[in-house]
């Protein structure tokens, strides 16, 4: 089948992230079963599937967010640029700088708009002085389309913005530390259609410099924004491939059932 890759196939040339035989357990319960996927660099990969299928669990494996859950155990590997992120010597703070995250509900810090964006560069020591820090903050706000809207009130609290603006602020905060990958967990589910369109447009813009992995329940959104789509079902990666292929001629009956609105 043209362009499509089965869950077991490996090796696309421009993979930045590569998961192999990934099993995840929450206590006794297994949440992911031998997931293997390549995430291509500077493209948008959408993870879709019914609730509880493991897509968010998988997303959280990509920057070790699951480490914060004590009962969570992981087998298998996730590589970034060829290095296993679960290796003993990995600096998790540095990993999360390289692999940033945007959540479902906009969660700006209870700080000013400026400080929300400046926070990451400060703790990672990315700016030598105030001038450099200003430059980072302004350019991130500019790239997320917020600068024009908030230029006059950079000291106002981040929480004073509208929901869509808050989400773009969170994206600005994520890119302020120059990550390689941005993980987005249903970033638009709390936004209205106009704010959603702005975020989708922003994602398309960000794709030039960053790799994006997005979990979404909205299949039209997955179809609109992504170049690659992976379908999860009951903890397994059923099928992944070019988005166009998945949404026009999926190979697996379960994928077909899910995306056409039938029981799989």
């Amino acid at each position: 089948m043209l362009d499509t890759m089965t869950a077991t196939a490996t090796g696309i040339s421009n993979a930045i992230l590569r998961a192999k035989n990934l099993d995840v357990f929450y206590g006794e319960k297994q949440a992911l079963f031998s997931v293997g996927i390549d995430i291509p660099e500077r493209e948008i990969t959408a993870l879709i599937g019914p609730s509880g299928c493991g897509k968010s669990t998988f997303l959280r494996c990509l920057n070790r967010m699951n480490d914060t859950i004590p009962s969570c155990t992981i087998r298998g590997t996730v590589e970034i640029g060829g290095h296993d992120i679960y290796a003993r010597d990995v600096d998790v703070v540095e990993l999360r700088r390289r692999v940033g995250m945007v959540f479902q509900k906009p969660n700006p810090f209870p700080k000013s708009i400026y400080d929300n964006v400046a926070y990451g560069p400060r703790i990672h020591g990315l700016a030598a002085d105030k001038g450099e820090l200003d430059e980072i903050v302004y350019s991130c706000l500019e790239r997320t389309g917020l600068l024009g809207e908030v230029r006059d009130r950079l000291d106002a609290p981040g929480t004073s913005l509208s929901g869509g603006q808050q989400q773009r602020l969170c994206i600005a905060r994520a890119i302020a530390v120059s990550p390689e990958v941005i993980l987005m967990d249903e970033p638009c589910s709390a936004l209205d259609p106009i704010a959603t369109a702005r975020v989708e447009e922003l994602m398309e813009e960000l794709r030039r410099n960053y790799t994006i992995v997005i979990v979404t329940h909205n299949m039209q959104q997955a179809a609109r924004v992504s170049q690659h789509t992976a379908f999860f079902h009951l903890g397994t990666l059923v099928e992944w491939g070019a988005t166009e292929q998945i949404f026009t001629s999926p190979s697996d009956e379960r994928t077909q059932g899910y995306i056409t609105g039938r029981y799989g």
């Binding site: 299949m219 949404f247 026009t248 001629s249 995306i259 056409t260």
Partner: peptide, 9 residues
């Protein structure tokens, strides 16, 4: 309905 896959075809 924004049909997908087989429905779209």
């Amino acid at each position: 309905r924004q049909p997908m896959a087989r429905d779209l075809r």
